[in-house]
């Protein structure tokens, strides 16, 4: 389909100081869900939008999709400001915990969404068949969605988001509620989209999925953007690598000195496990052990993971 609205050089998504305050309940309590989010998603990248539950990820995606209105701030999709319905010709969206018209069969369901894009009958047919195959539901075309399992619903939901062959695919927690195989399948679909030059913007709180497939990520905590960049950039900022050293047969004096160097010490029977948070100290410790009676059993370098960064960012706000 030739619905490419992307203007060369434009970001696929750009937000500027986006804020959302929910007014909730009888007492009209104000819940700030998003406080000044500014970020951009570039063409062709897989962008992971990370954050713990309640961080404001869904709120952001709902604003971008025109489901709710921001309290203040602006956003653009493919260079067009929010409110331009036409730009959605090039966008696909999978909501969180999707729920669908369960009285429709999978074929009717995809046909319906195809009509919303004004696709002709032949297009709808071929596109539906192709998508059902792509998400592994080719044998369930005539089954009503009420008979679908949760994993199948998630997959038909992804198919629905791709019916218009979108340039920009926005997925809200596409892996939540799926088993490891289902998650792998979703990952493969995302990678497949990237290979076709599509841009994928997805939210998740499941981190292991992210490192492998994301070109860039953003970490959102309590409605605030804490970090954004490539995984390598973010982890580079985490400081030196950590080292875990296991030694045996240490004298008491040596143990004392080593404990002073290490960030953390654990005694396991005859063995002592030492954690160092910088390479210099680990080197010093290694020389010390070699000069004495002790023996190094293992030496394992630990690169900081996205999970470490994530936890660090989440804890920052809690003063822990």
């Amino acid at each position: 389909m030739a619905y490419i609205h992307w203007v060369h050089g434009e970001d696929m998504i750009r937000t500027e100081n986006l804020c959302k305050v929910f007014v909730s309940g009888f007492l009209m309590r104000k819940v700030p869900a998003l406080t000044g989010l500014s970020m951009e998603v570039r063409k062709g990248e897989v962008f992971g939008f990370l954050g713990p539950n309640g961080a404001g990820k869904t709120t952001t995606l709902k604003i971008l999709m025109g489901l709710i209105y921001p309290s203040s701030g602006k956003a653009w999709i493919m260079g067009r400001e929010l409110g331009d319905v036409d730009v959605k010709r090039g966008v696909g969206f999978l909501p969180e915990h999707p729920y669908f018209y369960d009285y429709l069969t999978a074929n009717e369901f995809l046909d319906f969404y195809g009509r919303l894009f004004g696709l002709g009958r032949a297009d709808r047919r071929s596109r539906s068949a192709e998508l059902l195959r792509q998400v592994g539901l080719e044998r369930s075309g005539d089954v009503q969605l009420r008979k679908f399992s949760k994993g199948m619903l998630q997959r038909i939901g992804i198919a629905q988001a791709l019916i218009n062959d979108p340039e920009l695919v926005v997925l809200d927690e596409p892996m939540s509620g799926l088993d490891p195989i289902g998650r792998k399948e979703v990952r493969d679909i995302i990678i497949g989209l990237k290979d076709k030059g599509k841009t994928v913007f997805f939210s998740t709180h499941i981190l292991p999925d992210v490192e492998v497939i994301c070109d860039r990520v953003a970490i959102l905590v309590k409605g605030e953007l804490r970090a954004t960049g490539t995984v390598a950039e973010l982890l580079g900022g985490m400081g030196a690598k950590a080292v875990e050293m296991t030694v045996e047969g240490l004298g008491e004096a040596e143990t004392g000195v080593l404990s002073g160097l290490a960030a953390n010490v654990m005694v396991r029977g005859r063995q002592t496990v030492l954690f160092f948070d910088d390479l210099d100290k680990a080197g010093q410790a290694k020389r010390l052990v070699c000069r004495g009676e002790g023996e190094i059993v293992s030496l394992i370098p630990h690169s900081p993971s996205l999970e470490d960064l994530f936890l660090k960012e989440v804890r920052k706000g809690e003063g822990a």
Partner: peptide
């Protein structure tokens, strides 16, 4: 209530 509207309003439809 069923949030089916999310998949509709995110399409090019007023």
């Amino acid at each position: 209530e069923k949030k089916t509207i999310y998949t509709i309003i995110s399409k090019p439809i007023q």
